[in-house]
Design a protein around this nucleic acid. Structure first.
Length: 340
DNA sequence: GCGACAG
DNA sequence: ATCTTGTCGC
């Protein structure tokens, strides 16, 4: 199956990613003096209440572009919450000067809550994109021995992202070569939407690797694949976009429940969406070795069945918690980011 | 009050 | 992910 022109894929995907910063700013600027909204109100208007933590952290940025308005955003309980300059009293004073009465660090939301205008809800569109995403059917890891296993990770220096792909041989333990690409990210980290933050830099990286005729046979991606609220984690989406089989490797559990309550070294314990449907396996938890008590969360990206996925990941274990290709990509991307 | 969500 | 000091252990 011919691979797509990744230069073109990179450019067209970038077009489809909304500017959440601009949309949040637009919403915040509609709050008139004398009114407040909650972090959750803003997140829901962006399309997902799960974005409230990002909304709060962005508003509370000390030198952030919305620092002038952040006093008008409070917690859902009516508590004032934090303020960008650490001085909550100043938040109360600003609200009071605008006519919002504050008692015991609380605002009466019934009286002062502003109704935000209907927005474009960009996260609703992105959720729909994930749900409806049609994976190409032809992507399957070829039978026989794998030649090259790639490990992917991204590190950050501010809003600069450094993506690295470390290419390992069939044994999964010997580094052959690696590639790196640095670019500015323009989408925040929100749980469930990691792909929209990190896929752009990966696509730039793979466009270069394609130009050098150095694409691995299979990719281990730092993040989930099928183990995702909408079954469309970054590993799955990336595999579909670049046409290479992928496996998702996460260090923390995003969703689902582990069927077994006992993890033993080297055993693949199924993770299901709900214990009521134990046949719907989203991925596996595995302890790579006895030195760590935290498992790795491994799930199908695209084009590889469970057994082969387990075999490929297992042969990449060598004393670190992460498989060697990801471990190397993590260290190398971090090293480069620290020089920026 | 508790639980809590990849990077 | 990043911010961060010392500290425990192989």
């Amino acid at each position: 199956m011919p691979l797509p022109d990744l230069r073109h894929v990179a450019d067209s995907l970038q077009q489809r990613i909304p500017d959440l910063f601009a949309e949040l700013k637009r919403l915040v600027l509609t709050i008139p003096p004398g009114h407040v909204v909650t972090y959750g109100d803003l997140a829901k208007e962006l399309g997902d209440s799960g974005a409230s933590r990002w909304v709060a952290s962005y508003l509370l940025l000390p030198e952030g572009p919305l620092a002038d308005c952040s006093h008008r955003v409070v917690r859902s309980t009516g508590e004032l919450g934090l303020y960008h300059n650490q001085n909550v009293d100043q938040k109360a004073q600003k609200l009071a000067s605008e006519g919002v009465s504050v008692q015991n660090n609380q605002v009466d939301l019934k009286r002062f809550r502003w109704t935000l205008p209907a927005g474009s809800k960009p996260l609703v569109a992105l959720k729909a994109w994930q749900r409806d995403f049609a994976c190409p059917v032809g992507i399957e890891l070829a039978a026989g021995e794998v030649q090259t296993i790639g490990g992917l990770d991204v590190s950050y220096q501010g809003d600069m992202a450094v993506a690295v792909c470390s290419c390992f041989g069939a044994d999964g333990k010997e580094l052959q070569k690696h590639f790196a690409h640095t670019m500015r990210v323009r989408f925040p980290y929100i749980s469930g939407y990691l792909a929209f933050r990190e896929i752009p830099v990966y696509l730039e990286l793979f466009a270069e690797m394609q130009a050098n005729d150095c694409l691995p046979d299979v990719l281990l991606v730092d993040g989930n694949g099928r183990l995702h609220p909408r079954r469309m984690g970054i590993a799955t989406m990336l595999g579909a976009l670049i046409g290479i089989p992928t496996i998702g490797i996460a260090k923390n559990q995003l969703c689902g429940s582990i069927l077994s309550d006992q993890l033993t070294v080297g055993s693949w314990e199924p993770i299901v969406a709900s214990k009521n449907e134990p046949d719907d396996v989203l991925g596996y938890a595995i302890l790579p070795h006895a030195k760590t008590k935290n498992p790795l969360y491994v799930s199908q990206g695209l084009g590889i069945g469970d057994l082969r996925m387990q075999e490929i990941v297992a042969r990449c274990f060598a004393g670190h918690r992460s498989p060697e290709p990801i471990y190397h990509a993590d260290r190398e991307s971090r090293r480069i980011a620290s020089t920026l």
